[in-house]
Amino acid sequence: MNTLKDMILTEIEGEWYAVPVGEAAKRFSGMIRMNKTGKRIFELLMEGKDQDGVVKELMEEYEVDEATARSNVGDFIGKLKGAGVL
């Protein structure tokens, strides 16, 4: 189940949070805290990009190699799945 579209991103003193709204708030209570890179991955997933698409985008935006990007994105998606958001 993908609830990303039912979440709102907000920033407090340089730290980013994804907060569930409406129906998503009934399925998932709490928030996901993330750094700037996590927030960018989250946005790309919200736009509907798949894992490969996000990796490609990160490689371009942050000038990192594929292994690094893939590992970051994999870890982050694991975190979202663990939280029940993906």
Binding site: I8, T10, G22
Partner: peptide, 15 residues
């Protein structure tokens, strides 16, 4: 936390 998305987003901005 409002159920309405727009109101919720505004609340986050107010916080």
């Amino acid at each position: 936390c409002p159920e309405d998305r727009e109101a919720f987003a505004r609340t986050m901005g107010l916080l």
